[in-house]
């Protein structure tokens, strides 16, 4: 595998500003650091028994969430999976809201009614995190259908794992989106494992998403999901296509999760040395090198690191101090009248 250094363009040839530019690169860096710090904190809080229920971390996959979110415009919609912390944070949701939900406190994004797997913040365009594999691909199609019908220019972006490519809803949604030419972008985060089983052991083609694209008349798009620049550029292209009314895209991003599938999983099924090899390709490590090549100093980066850490520290303290949800929200919002009455 080529190293990041081999692939990086010579900064001298590009000058210090290419198509991405310093401001956007700093935003991509800040976003990735923020996702990393917030999720590492979630893991620490889990070890302290302060994060309840389950949690599925995206440690090692930050370039995908950051790259897509930075390419999205206000009004674009994100549809996430149970592994949705990173995608939610990347749209600008405060760390406190996410950690509060993981800690099941009243200050959480949904006041503890949804939990880690269902993060939703419609004001930030996060239209839900879906814990039934594949369910949200058709839902993203529907949001895109509304945009098409109403003449809106927003794009629906649907993130899912490699395991999702083997469920029926994936295929129904891809065909549906292609036939109706919907402004939806499907993003497969291929982290090589469905849960505990290598995706290659249970899939008929080597690339679970990209190799299916042709079945739906779509371009085969397979990218390095650990390089935020590559992700960002790919996202921009797919969004432009969607906004131009030219239909959906299916993008497979190769990546690797540094932790297990969920908090219950130490990841012992992975061959020895695999994690270490992928940590060499850590998206944050790659991006720090990239920033240096574009003339951004260590000091600038560590200033960002410090600011982000402070946000995460402050959020942690706020969550620890926050009350648990009051019992009176138990029966609210079952129906649109705000209550739960099913009879008179």
């Amino acid at each position: 595998m080529a190293t990041a250094k081999d692939r990086a363009p010579a900064p001298a040839a590009l000058g210090l500003n290419d198509d991405i530019g310093e401001e956007k690169r700093l935003a991509l860096y800040r976003s990735q650091i923020r996702l990393r710090e917030a999720e590492q904190r979630a893991y620490d809080l889990f070890l302290q028994n302060l994060v309840k229920g389950t949690s599925h971390l995206s440690l090692g996959q930050e370039a995908i969430a950051a790259g897509f979110a930075e390419a999205m415009q206000k009004g674009d919609l994100s549809f996430c999976t149970y592994r949705g912390h990173a995608h939610t944070l990347a749209r600008g949701v405060p760390v406190e809201k996410v950690l509060g939900e993981l800690m099941q406190r009243d200050n959480g994004l949904m006041r503890g009614k949804g939990g880690s797997m269902h993060l939703t913040s419609e004001e930030h365009g996060v239209m839900g995190s879906y814990a039934i594999i594949g369910a949200h691909l058709p839902i993203a199609c529907g949001a895109a259908w509304r945009a098409q019908y109403k003449g809106h220019k927003d794009v629906s972006v649907c993130f899912f794992g490699d395991g999702t490519t083997n469920i029926g809803a994936f295929h129904e949604a891809l065909n549906f989106a292609a036939v109706w030419k919907l402004p939806v972008v499907f993003v497969c985060e291929n982290n090589l494992y469905m849960e505990y089983t290598p995706i290659a052991d249970v899939t008929a083609v080597p690339q679970p998403a990209a190799d299916r694209a042709s079945a739906y008349g779509l371009e085969r798009i397979l990218i390095d999901g650990n390089d935020a620049d590559v992700v960002y550029r790919t996202a921009q292209k797919a969004f432009a296509k969607a906004r131009a009314g030219e239909g959906p895209s299916l993008i497979e991003c190769i990546t690797y999760r540094h932790s297990g599938h969920s908090r219950a999983d130490p990841g012992k099924y992975r061959p020895e040395g695999e994690l270490e090899k992928w940590k060499e390709r850590d998206p944050i490590k790659i991006y720090r090198e990239r920033l240096k090549q574009f003339g951004i100093s260590e000091d600038q980066m560590s200033d960002i690191d410090t600011e982000v850490r402070k946000e995460v520290d402050d959020a942690t303290e706020a969550c620890k101090a926050a009350p648990i949800p009051p019992v009176d929200i138990l029966t609210t919002d079952v129906y649109a009248d705000g209550g739960w009455a099913w009879r008179n």
Binding site: H136, P138, W145, A173
Partner: peptide, 24 residues
């Protein structure tokens, strides 16, 4: 406004939900 779909019941109901969530 009146659209034929493939034989894809999950796509039909999922699309209806996504449309309903966003204003239709």
């Amino acid at each position: 406004r009146v659209r034929d779909t493939p034989i894809s019941e999950q796509a039909i109901l999922g699309a209806a939900m996504g449309a309903a969530m966003t204003g239709l």
